[in-house]
Amino acid sequence: MKKIYTRPKSLKRTPFHYCPGCGHSITHKIMTELIDEMNLQDKTIGIPPPGCSVFAYNYFDIDMAESAHGRGAAVATGLKRAYPEAIVFTYQGDGDLAAIGTAETIHASNRGENITAIFINNAVYGMTGGQMAPTTLLSQKTTTTPYGRDDKIEGYPIKMSEILALVKGSAYIERVAVNSPANIIKAKKAIRKAFQVQIDCLGFSMVEILSPCPTNWKMSPVESWKWIDEVMVKEFPLGVIKDITGKKDAG
């Protein structure tokens, strides 16, 4: 019999430090599959700022550099401008991209920087222990919203994809989820397209990924995967939010 599914070449052998069922692991897997399929291993450079994925460089077998919390888009801008031949992506959590790094992200997008943001929306601050994120849902309990997020005090879950779609320099924005076989395949397609947009020099691309965090949601992995469908997508609907290419993706 033929082996039809195996570990991607650009994924190091190191076991993930992520919790069981974590969406970071799935995302790393599909990204490294794509890097192999698109033959990008020797020209891709990844920027993972602090967040649970700060150690992403232990897994991606490509050039990678840490950045300060929230500054990924600025670091990627400098890197890409200095070396335009590279394929540059940031890999940012919701705290990173949608709170501390909002300015960097919006302006990199507005300048149409030819970079790709992989935006992990897990509705919490994972690394620091489950505090409220800007994307935390209303009435969702976190360690800093112990009574549930209250819009009168904490405001509303912020929709970065919709905000960035309004910015002229963005070329491609899609929201996906990594919580079912079909969704994972769609997520992979979206990231492929985002990389292609960068290869074609069309401007800023971002894929927002609704990503399970069973640990801080205090759920089993399977429950957390279901919760995305049952609850999270109601606030964060899936689909292409902006696409200037006009092309339907060929897969």
Partner: peptide, 10 residues
């Protein structure tokens, strides 16, 4: 998530 599964088909 862990890329722990390899699949064979024949």
């Amino acid at each position: 998530p862990e890329v722990a599964i390899e699949v064979y088909r024949g």
